Amino acid sequence: MNIILIGAQGSGKGTQAEKLAQVLGVLHVASGDLFRSAIAQGTELGMKAKIYIDRGDLVPDDITVAMVLSRLQEPDCARGVLLDGFPRTLEQAKALDRGLQEADRFIDTAVYLEVPREILLKRLSGRYICRANQHIYNINTRPPKVPGICDLDGSELYQRSDDQGEAVQKRLDIFFNGTFKLLDYYRDEGKLATVNGNQDVEKVHKDLVKAITDRL
């Protein structure tokens, strides 16, 4: 079972992906986590990716595709994956299909988590992440018990540079400009489902599970 969860920054995609992966029994593979790990380790790909991430730009396809396909070849991905944050462009989707075909695998379904732009901006402006384990908080909707401190591991909370100012607008512009072709690609293959992401977390989760299981 190989599933793609498509959603803009601030759509709740990461939170939903973790819950879905547990329910479906597949591995959650987030491109953002792969990038952050590579940056923290100081790898060549990580340092190249950091330049684009800090500017709010998409990381070039050759870097992103190489990193994701390498991860999918690892043994813990054999039972299936839930891809979060990849692919983001039509070119990445086609490269993913080619890479999976070489391993006699394919994408079962792609789900678009739809949230209005004005809601995304509000969510992103209040989003903070813990340094230790990337737990996500929002000072407007899900604040920590102690300001600036993660409830779960006690590490410092910080706001990503690309969640601030013009970088936020730029990231959303890039997402929406590229997403329609991506959605059309999976729609034409009969693999696309759309779920309203502007609901409470549990309702979104239930809708996502239904959208996926109905197509398997």
Rank of each mutant, 00 (worst) to 15 (best):
Asp108Met: 07
Thr109Ile: 05
Gln22Thr: 12
Val26Tyr: 01
Met67Trp: 05
Thr194Pro: 02
Arg160Ile: 03
Ile39Leu: 08
Ile139His: 03
Ala38Ile: 08
Val111Trp: 00
Pro116Leu: 09
Thr89Ile: 01
Gln16Trp: 00
Leu121Ala: 04
Asp200Ala: 09
Ile136Gln: 09
Pro143Met: 04
Asp184Cys: 05
Ala40Ile: 01
Gly46Tyr: 03
Phe180Ala: 11
Lys210Tyr: 08
Val26Phe: 02
Leu121Lys: 13
Tyr128Pro: 03
Arg131Pro: 00
Leu183Tyr: 06
Ser155Tyr: 07
Gln22Ile: 05
Asp173Glu: 11
Tyr186Glu: 06
Asp108Ala: 11
Thr89Trp: 10
Val115Trp: 06
Ala30Pro: 01
Lys203Cys: 08
Lys19Gly: 01
Leu192Glu: 04
Ala66Asn: 09
Ile39Asn: 06
Gly56Arg: 11
Ile63Asp: 12
Glu114Met: 07
Asp153Ile: 09
Val81Lys: 01
Lys48Cys: 04
Phe35Cys: 08
Asp54His: 06
Gly12Leu: 03
Gly56Ala: 10
Ile63Tyr: 10
Val23His: 14
Ala38Gln: 14
Asp163Gly: 10
Ile139Thr: 15
Gln41Pro: 00
Leu216Ala: 09
Tyr112Arg: 04
Gly148Phe: 08
Thr179Ile: 15
His135Gln: 13
Ala78Lys: 15
Val65Lys: 04
Ile139Asn: 06
Ala30Glu: 08
Ala30Ser: 15
Ala103Arg: 12
Gln159Ala: 12
Asp57Asn: 12
Lys203Glu: 14
Leu100Ile: 11
